[in-house]
Design a protein around this nucleic acid. Structure first.
Length: 759
RNA sequence: GCGCGGUUAGCUCAGUUGGUAGAGCAUCCCCUUGACGUGGGGAGGGUCACAGGUUCGAAUCCUGUAUCGCGCACCA
């Protein structure tokens, strides 16, 4: 179809195809190029620091762990952004001669993965997990995880990720299981992990407990009911959940509230909606006098705060709701009904008995389980916790990162203090720094971390029980206890427990490996700002506690990738863009550039096809620039160019080289300060609007003149510039630049990925 | 309630230590130029959310307001 174009070129440059290869006669073909180049990289072995050139091996270590994608499916544009940023960091470090490791892996994502598989089985076979049993379910989940894993790996290769596949890890593989058990045992022995009976967040849909951080809040309109328990009880209370009142064991008022002072200490008995209740009036400072009637019904079994209040005042606990969010007591119409139904039934009962005094509309936050969307039901349960406030002796703390916090050997600290100190001491820098405040705020409000889950997919808790005549024996260790009658805890660990160990479990801990010594603390952690608490904070906790050193020196947080209209990517909106489709259509380099340019750390971004298309055009532009440069200079594969020689530019070209040097110095500063969004934009601008539009256009005039020296100077200039542009663009557009580099007639060149950065 | 962030050209956003406002896309006009029409040249378009203040000078620093978004807490 493009006959005319070909004839024109061949007419003007009969020598072009023999000189620079026929492929430059056609537009850049990303599909034909990218897989070929990735294979070339893999074969080179350079992804693995052990195989890097000497200059790297002797260089300063640079390490990043990949935030392990969940094996629940496939990557989306957000993951693509993460991969693009990290690959830029890693390639830049490698080109700067660092001993560079980017360690990949995947996350078993316990609840998320199991619930996907469970749903599938329910849909296709109509069976629950209990119908098929623990062993069979785990086999099914493993098969699913394996398949997801392969998809993820394929996608990462398409993105051009220069990760060391030989070190790939999985949060649930055998090595990581040993790390998990080792960590658990140490914390158990130090008394930081304990088993406790208390109100926890129960997800009736997922049939498991979840941590405070796994709750999402949704504001909904609801009714606030004000009523009396009975005609004989003189205090009215307000609640949004009348059904829980069947489990009340107290009425709390503020100690300074004169309205109720006379009742403090008294006990009332009545039958409430069929349930006998006994209410002791207590005075507690956590009660707000101004809210409602200033008195509240205390439900120790079904409210976190009430539980704590009950502890303070010795009130008994009475559970009236079960694991399926159904009532276990009450009159007909309440007992065995779901809480929502029971609520209406209780209100009806109140009306019938003329006890309801007021009904008002209020806005109210309801708690939803992040993974399943189930309404969280606080329930009293025996669970495992990590104590974040308990002081313990930190041993063997020879590390400067902890010393800087003023934490030294044999000093008493709590996990909270360790987490806080890692930042306040400057041992870890969070970017953008406004997230430091968010982090501190989270620590301030942090409660003990519930780590046991009633699901099957995950690390089994390394604790065994044996019932003896008088009491139950408990045994915690890496390996099961010897002897008869021991039974392992049925529960598994919160997935974030194993993720928290990621920076060092991947490097071989608890073994003292060379990798661990070389690459830990890791240089930088790059991840989404949405998992600052889940993951970043937990890694800091685990690393400072178990290794006495920070897990990383810098945290770089990226924001959310939204669609072209600025909406969140969600299944229900159907606005998910598959990075693979975009890569097929526009090329991996174009996708990477479009995700990077203009997106600073921590800020959300929008991605639309137009933007990706613009960078596909840029890729093609560079392709054609190459054609012009190669066909206009005399360098050939038979007569290669020595890039590093010194040249005699004329004064004009010398001036241009100075401008180029300034540009490169400028973006080098940007790169060193993680301003990839600026560096990429500046390079784009220089290549297109300076190098192509001005310098190449200008060259045409020079080449058609008879000024021999000027022509020679400009040819050198163009060629040297071309090489430097490829080097500088490589971290951003690795496939295209590597492909062009392979055609450059340069003496003694390596793969571009291990060439020097031009700054 | 506490805290954080955004508000700059029609759209998406830059603007790193305060010095007469920038880019890409879109719009309009011109151009078959020795690589590229996935191209080239040019033009229009902004009282930098608003109100004060500091300063010789503020998009940039300070105070307040509005508005959108986010986090945390409350959630009887």
């Amino acid at each position: 179809m493009d006959n005319k174009k070909d004839i024109k070129i061949v007419g003007g440059y009969g020598h072009i195809d023999e000189k620079i290869g026929a492929k430059f006669l056609k537009p850049y073909d990303s599909v034909a190029t990218e897989d070929k180049i990735y294979t070339l990289w893999e074969k080179s072995g350079y992804f693995n620091p052990d195989n890097l050139p000497e200059r790297n091996k002797n260089g300063e270590p640079f390490s990043i762990v990949l935030p392990p994608p969940n094996v629940t499916g496939m990557l989306h544009m957000g993951s693509a952004l993460m991969l693009a940023i990290e690959d830029i960091m890693v390639r830049y470090a490698r080109m700067n001669g660092k001993n560079t490791l980017w360690l990949p892996g995947t996350d078993h994502a316990a609840i998320a993965t199991q619930s996907v598989v469970e749903k599938d089985i329910q849909k296709k076979e109509g069976k629950s997990r209990h119908d098929i049993g623990r062993e069979e379910l785990l086999l099914r989940v493993d098969a699913y995880a394996k398949q997801s894993h392969d998809t993820i790996v394929r996608q990462m290769k398409k993105m051009g990720c220069s990760v060391d596949w030989s070190r790939e890890a999985f949060t649930l593989d055998e090595k990581r299981n040993l790390s998990v058990k080792t960590a658990f045992k140490k914390m158990y022995d130090d008394g930081l992990i304990y088993r406790g009976f208390r109100v926890v967040n129960w997800d009736p849909k997922g049939q498991t407990t979840i941590s405070d951080d796994e709750i999402e809040y949704e504001t909904r309109k609801t009714k606030l009911y004000t009523f009396k328990y009975s005609k004989d009880i003189p205090i009215s209370i307000s609640t949004t959940r009348p059904e829980t009142k069947l489990g009340d064991t107290g009425i709390a008022v503020h100690p300074d509230d004169t309205r109720y002072a006379q009742f403090i200490g008294r006990e009332f008995k009545t039958i409430f909606a069929g349930q006998e209740i006994s209410l002791k009036v207590i005075a507690d400072r956590s009660v707000e006098m101004a809210f409602g009637t200033g008195a509240l019904g205390v439900t120790p079994a079904h409210s976190q705060i009430d539980w704590e209040m009950a502890q303070r005042h010795g009130l008994p606990t009475k559970q009236v709701i079960n694991e399926y969010a159904k009532m276990t007591v009450g009159i007909e119409g309440i007992k065995d009904k779901k809480v929502t139904e029971a609520r209406e039934a209780v209100v009806l009962w109140l009306k019938e008995n003329d006890l309801l005094e007021k009904e008002e509309d209020i806005e109210h936050n309801i708690s939803l389980a992040q993974r399943t969307g189930g309404v969280v039901e606080p329930l009293p349960k025996l669970q495992w916790f990590i104590d974040v406030n308990k002081k313990f002796n930190i041993k063997d703390s020879g590390f400067t990162s902890l010393n800087k916090q003023g934490i030294v050997s044999e000093k008493e600290v709590s996990l909270k203090e360790l987490m806080k100190g890692a930042i306040t001491s400057g041992s870890i820098r969070i970017m953008p720094d406004r997230f430091e405040k968010v982090y501190f705020n989270w620590i301030e409000n942090l409660r003990d971390w519930c780590i046991s889950r009633q699901i099957w997919y995950g690390h089994r808790i390394p604790v065994w029980y044996r019932s003896a005549a008088t009491a139950t024996e408990i045994y915690c260790d890496i390996n099961p206890p010897k002897g008869e009658g021991w039974k392992q805890d049925e529960d598994t660990l919160d997935t974030w427990f194993s993720s928290g160990l990621w920076t060092f479990s991947t490097l071989g801990w608890p073994e003292k490996t060379i990798d661990l010594k070389t690459f830990h603390p890791t240089t930088i952690l790059e991840t989404g700002s949405d998992i600052l608490f889940f993951w970043v904070a937990r890694m800091i906790l685990m690393s400072t506690y178990l290794l006495n050193e920070v897990p990383f020196k810098t945290v770089y947080l990226h924001g959310l990738v939204r669609d072209a209209k600025g909406r969140k990517i969600s299944k229900s909106l159907g606005n998910n863009v598959d990075p693979l489709d975009m890569i097929t259509k526009y090329g991996s380099d174009a996708v990477r550039m479009s995700l990077i340019v203009g997106v600073g750390p921590g800020s959300d971004s929008k991605i639309g096809e137009d933007k990706i298309k613009a960078y596909k055009n840029f890729a093609n532009k560079l392709w054609n620039i190459t054609r012009f440069v190669l066909s206009s200079t005399e360098y050939t594969l038979a007569n290669p160019f020595v890039e590093s020689g010194s040249y005699n530019y004329n004064s004009n070209d010398n001036e241009l080289m100075k401008i180029q040097n300034a540009m490169l110095a400028d973006i080098t500063v940007d790169m060193n300060n993680y301003r990839y969004y600026l560096a990429a934009e500046k390079l784009y601008h220089y290549v297109w609007h300076e190098f192509a539009d001005k310098l190449i256009e200008d060259s045409k005039k020079i080449f058609s003149s008879d000024k021999v020296e000027e022509i020679a100077s400009r040819k050198q200039f163009l060629f040297v510039s071309m090489c430097r542009i490829l080097r500088a663009l490589h971290p951003f557009m690795p496939f295209l630049t590597e492909e062009i580099w392979s055609e450059m007639p340069i003496k003694d060149k390596s793969l571009l990925m291990v060439e020097k950065w031009p700054g």
